[in-house]
Structure formats: structure tokens, C-alpha cells
Design a protein around this nucleic acid. Sequence first.
DNA 1: TAAAATTGCGTACAAGTGTACGCTGAAAAA
DNA 2: TTTTTCAGCGTACACTTGTACGCAATTTTA
Lengths: 203, 203
Amino acid sequence: MGGHRAQQKEKTRRTIIDAAFRLLNQERSYSSLSLREVTREAGIAPTSFYRHFEDMEELGLTLVDEGGVALRQLMRKARQRIRDQGSVIQTSVETFMEFIQSSPHVFRLLLRERSGTSLAFRKAVSRELQYFVVELADYIQHTQGYPAEEARVQAEAMVILVFNACAEALDCKPAERKLLTEKSIRQLRFVARGADEFLKGRH
Amino acid sequence: MGGHRAQQKEKTRRTIIDAAFRLLNQERSYSSLSLREVTREAGIAPTSFYRHFEDMEELGLTLVDEGGVALRQLMRKARQRIRDQGSVIQTSVETFMEFIQSSPHVFRLLLRERSGTSLAFRKAVSRELQYFVVELADYIQHTQGYPAEEARVQAEAMVILVFNACAEALDCKPAERKLLTEKSIRQLRFVARGADEFLKGRH
DNA sequence: TAAAATTGCGTACAAGTGTACGCTGAAAAA
DNA sequence: TTTTTCAGCGTACACTTGTACGCAATTTTA
């Protein structure tokens, strides 16, 4: 089952994807990657690329998708931790910070393509981040009893703040990262507290 | 005075800078710009570029600087408006939104290079944004009597939220931009209100 | 005035790019 | 078995890129 052929093809496809990820470091962005570079890193002929992807954009979107999967795994992990230890805000921020430490490539890809030149990329990244927003909004809505709209606006603010703190953290040493984590936590608390006050004031 | 020569040189230099800005649209980022493209757009020979800039990075940093000037003008304008009409939050957000409408190239440059591949660029953009943060923090500190630290953390959160809303607005039609503006205002109010509550709670 | 300096141009070259085309060997289908 | 399919390769081509080098014209300096 599977077919020896299809199996081999999938394997090569993965080789390409992994090679591309490997090339995404501090000073290479996806858009600056050439098809030939990727195939060189993957150890295949340039023209073989086309057996797997239409062009570089298609590969890029695949990478973003994989990044999204990693993000959602992260989200699940965070949810578990929140159940275990309580603090939503602290846990979310810390989980994110661990993510950029364990897979900076993935984070950088999402970070850069979020404001990149390809609309398709921007939309894809935005979609991935929305998963997080929805998840968090749900949590807020159910535990705090906020209206859906209100919860969502709040959740979006929080995700943006955490995401930006992580972006900043990429350029930092561990010690400075700790400070950033704390700052970020304070900012999220502002948002949470502020939203709460607005809601109380309305009744 | 000035010297006919130096004067002519400055003129060509401007031609190059303007050409580069002109090329920065939706689907071209600075890092994807080639030296030859810029000189072609500027109407000079490729090799003449070197009479004015060491390399593309130097030109890029010049552009970021010019973008910073535009931002600071914006800031001054906002300050004036706040004096005239009162609401800090609404005015700040609206001024920013007008900025991306009037000079989207400049905003896009800052937005992209903020998470780009060149550390020098990232630092330059970060520095420009810090002007805004400092300014806003000052305002908060003086009108609300917050401690400097607290005001700064709050101001940073606000600038990040506005900046991100603008980034999102770049892909939007005017009608959607209005919604974004409102959402952004609400988020900043959360932050302001939350910070306020935290401070009250401490006494 | 003569000499020096400097902006801008044209040419040239090595290196890198995307991709069209046809071949080969092995797997899948007949 | 014979035939068909197809992943992967090598070659080839037309472009684009950055930049070294020397020349021309004109301004600045001596």
C-alpha cells in the first residue's frame, strides 16, 4: 500500500521542504531564496523541483502551512498548561517564548511573510494567527462571560502584543528575553484589566 | 555658495532616493530591489550609483531615515491636533491611518524592514518607532502622573497596536479601514484603562 | 592660465537565475 | 511479458545581477 513510487516522491518532497526551512535563518528571508539554492541544499537537480511544486510561491505556502501546524501544536500545549497551572496570560506568553527558542525558523517565516510582498502569503499567515485569536477569544468568552465581539477584540490585541514581543525577542539574549516576557505579561494584563473595566462600566 | 558641483551631485542623489521610493509598492520590498533597477528608474548608469552610495544597504538606511522624518512630522501634527481637540487615543490612531493613506510607500518600508533580514535596518526602524513611544510615554506620564516605567510599557503597547492595525489596513478598502480604526481605538482604550486600574490598585 | 579632481557613462565579465527539452531507469499498468 | 508512466538528471539558453576599469566632460583648485 502507498506504492513504492508515491512513497519515494513524498520523501523527496520532504527533503525539499526541510532544505528550505534550513535556509531560513537570521539573514535569509523566504523571498530572497532562489529555486536553485533550495534544490542545491536538498541535493537534487534544479529542474526536479517542478515535479513537486509549481513554483517557489507554492513551496512557500506549504512552509507557512507547516508553520501553522507547529503553531497549533503550541496552542494545544498552552491550553494544557493553562488547565494545569491556571494563569492564562503568563502561560501564553511563556509558551510563545519557548516556541521562538525551539523553532526560530518557523517563527521568522511567519513574522516576515506577514508583512511580505505576496498577498497570498500575508493571508495565509493571517489565517494561522486567527486560529490563535479565536481560541483565546473563546476562552475569554467562556471564563469571563464577555460578549463574543468584545472577547475577540481583546484577544486580537493580546495576540498582537505577544507576537510582537516575540519578534523583538529574536534579536535578544536570554537575559533580555526574560525582561521582554515580563513586559509582555504586564501589557496583556493591561488589556485584560481594561477590557474588564469597560465591561463593568457598561452595566 | 554650495558649489555648482556639489549642488548637481545632491540633485542626482535625490533622483536615486526618489526612484527607490517609487519602486516600493505592494509587491516590491526593498530587499528585493536591485541596484540596476534603481538606477534604471532613476535614469542614470548603474555604475554611477557608487558615486553616491557605498552599496544598496547604505541607500536603504537613507530611506529609513527619510521615513523617520516623515513619521516625526506626523507625530508633530498629531500633537497639535491633540492640543486642539483633546482625545489622545482617537487622534493618534486617525493620524496614523491618514499617514498610510498619504504615504503607503514609506509605511511599507518601515513595516517590512522592521522584520527584515538586515540587523542594521531592524535597529533603524526600531529607533524611529521609539521616538513615538517616548513621546507618547511623556504625554501619559505628565497628564496622568504615571511613573516613567509604567508609562513607557503602556506607550509601547499602544504604538504596537496602532502600527499593526495600520499594517492590516494596507490591504483594506476604505470602508474596512474605518472598522479597523474603531477596533484599534477600542484596543488602546483597553490598555489605557487597564494601566490606570493597575495604578489605582497599587495605592 | 594650467593642473587636478570628480561626476557620469559605456563596456565587459563572471556569476547566478528560471525554466524548456529530451533522456534514462525503474515502477506501475496492461 | 510488454507497454506506459514518471521522478530525477544534464544540457542549454536567454536574462539579470554587481562591479572593475578606463574614458569624457566639466568644475574646482593652484
